[in-house]
Amino acid sequence: MSDAVAWVEARFAGAIVVAILGLLLANVVSRAFGRPLIWTDELAVYLMVLGAFAGASLGLANRQHIAVTLVSDGLGEHVRKILARVVDTVLLALFALFAWMLWNWFDPLGVLAAEDLQAYSLKSFNFLYQEPTTTLGMRKVWFWLILPVFCLTGIVHVLARFGAVSERAQ
């Protein structure tokens, strides 16, 4: 499952890069003709955020995230495997904490129980679902949804490593 998710993430991140390039080129051309597309800058920033989270999850899947390996490089193979398992355990704990934080922030049960989003926002002071983008005119929540997706895919990738270790042990 992790491999399938990583395949999708790689294509998604690639498509995002192409979309950003297209937006920036369109903006350059439109400015040259004196008719700038102001919204392209904001959309490019949001797309960069989406691509960064997709790429970060893909990096987790391939163990390509930034790491300081000075200590682990000097250790034996067995100790390195134990250290990798400890790192994966810490990552899983961090993703569990992140999932809890996202659940509280998005508060899906509170939103579903509310009469309307305006009343929910005023009561809870959570304006996540109401805040609009500056130039696009759409709600920012559509871009914030990358956070629970990243959390879920990160958990999938870390759990896959636990499964891969136990399969090798058998």
Rank of each mutant, 00 (worst) to 15 (best):
A93P: 13
T133N: 04
L97Y: 05
L128W: 07
P36C: 03
A61L: 06
F53Y: 13
G110H: 04
V149Y: 08
V158Q: 04
L145G: 14
Q170L: 06
A96S: 12
I146N: 09
E167Q: 07
G59D: 05
D107V: 10
A119G: 10
K140F: 11
P36N: 05
W100P: 15
H65P: 14
D88H: 00
A96Y: 03
R11Y: 04
E77Y: 02
L70F: 08
V90P: 05
E115V: 09
L25D: 00
A15W: 12
K81L: 00
F12I: 11
A15V: 15
V68I: 07
V141T: 13
M1H: 08
S166R: 04
A84E: 01
V86W: 01
V156L: 04
E77M: 03
H157V: 03
L102H: 08
C151V: 12
V28F: 05
L94D: 12
M48A: 11
M1L: 11
F95P: 06
W39C: 06
T89H: 15
Q64D: 14
L83K: 01
A56Y: 11
F12V: 09
L47Q: 12
R11T: 13
D116Y: 02
L147N: 13
T40G: 04
A54V: 15
V86E: 02
V90W: 08
A10L: 15
L94I: 03
K140C: 09
S57L: 07
W142Y: 12
T69F: 00
R31W: 04
T135R: 10
W142L: 14
D3M: 09
L145W: 13
T134N: 15
A6C: 14
I146R: 07
A15D: 11
V79R: 03
P132T: 09
F33A: 00
F150H: 13
V158H: 06
A61R: 07
C151N: 10
A67D: 01
V45M: 11
A10R: 10
W7V: 12
R139H: 14
D41K: 06
A114N: 15
L58R: 08
I66Q: 09
K140R: 13
R85I: 00
V149G: 15
F95Q: 09
N104H: 08
A93Q: 10
W39F: 13
D73M: 00
G51R: 02
I66C: 11
D116T: 01
F143S: 08
D3C: 07
S124P: 08
E167M: 01
L91G: 11
F12S: 12
V17A: 02
N104S: 07
R80D: 01
I82H: 06
S2E: 06
L94E: 13
V28Y: 03
W105P: 13
V79D: 05
H78N: 15
M101L: 12
P36W: 08
V49L: 12
V158Y: 01
L152F: 13
L92R: 06
V149D: 13
D88P: 00
G74V: 01
V87Q: 03
A19N: 06
L50V: 15
T89R: 07
S121F: 07
K140L: 14
R63T: 02
M48G: 15
R85G: 02
A32I: 02
L112M: 14
L128M: 12
D73K: 00
L58Q: 07
H78L: 06
A84Q: 02
E77Q: 08
Q130C: 09
I155K: 06
L47R: 10
D3L: 03
A96K: 03
S2Y: 01
L24I: 05
G74E: 01
T40W: 10
